[in-house]
Write a protein that binds this DNA or RNA. Sequence first.
DNA 1: ATGTCCTTACCTTAAGGA
Length: 259
Amino acid sequence: MKIATFNINGIKARIEALPRWLEEAQPDVVCLQEIKSVDEAFPREIFEDMGYHVETHGQKSFNGVAILSKFPLEDVTRGLPGDAADEQARWIEAVVLSPRPIRVCGLYLPNGNPAPGPKYDYKLAWMARMEARVRALLATEEPFLCAGDYNIIPQAEDAARPEAWTEDALFLPASRAAFRRMLHLGLTEAFRARVQGGGHYSFWDYQAGAWERNNGIRIDHLLLSPQAADRLLDVGIDKATRAGDKPSDHVPVWAMLSD
DNA sequence: ATGTCCTTACCTTAAGGA
């Protein structure tokens, strides 16, 4: 089973690029972020016609996450537990009914800039809520994974110019520590389980010729529970999509799991 | 390089977010 995460930066703007990539890459499950659409306006028929089940957790203008799956989805829940007043659409969960079912959490972790400030406080509080959710899921011992735009540069080697990010919410020590805490609970970061070294990125800013200069960062990740990590076969970053027509500023990151 | 793209709104231009 091939499962991917892709921050599309607006479904309306990616209405051609997203189906084009799905056709080429043939993922079984995709976690989408920044759909920037309410549920009613999401063009689900386009994806249903391609054989996907579609579940969305949208919001007007900003944020918004979705799961596309060639297998049926059950137990769909929307929103990250822990703060009933949080109205930002950044978390969706579902159990994928593949031959060996697996729970998939799709997430769009807050950016947090500028730091310090209220947006950074929200980021850290959100990560604490996510850690609590991960602890609860680990306790069930069912296979699961958390895939999405984490807005976290885990290590210096995950940025082309790490010195440019030292004051940024994506690379501050407290951000990276919160990410590492979740790994230390027993999750496996799929890409780093298979590929070592620098030069692997999932985001290139639209500004300042970042793509042309390969000034990228690796911030889109798949974290696997122990039972899911046992099934990890391969990983990849579909870098070529960044060079296509009307690209997102992120590219898809995927993991192949045994069925 | 204050450099771009996406979205919305009192909408042909500006703003907020990333």
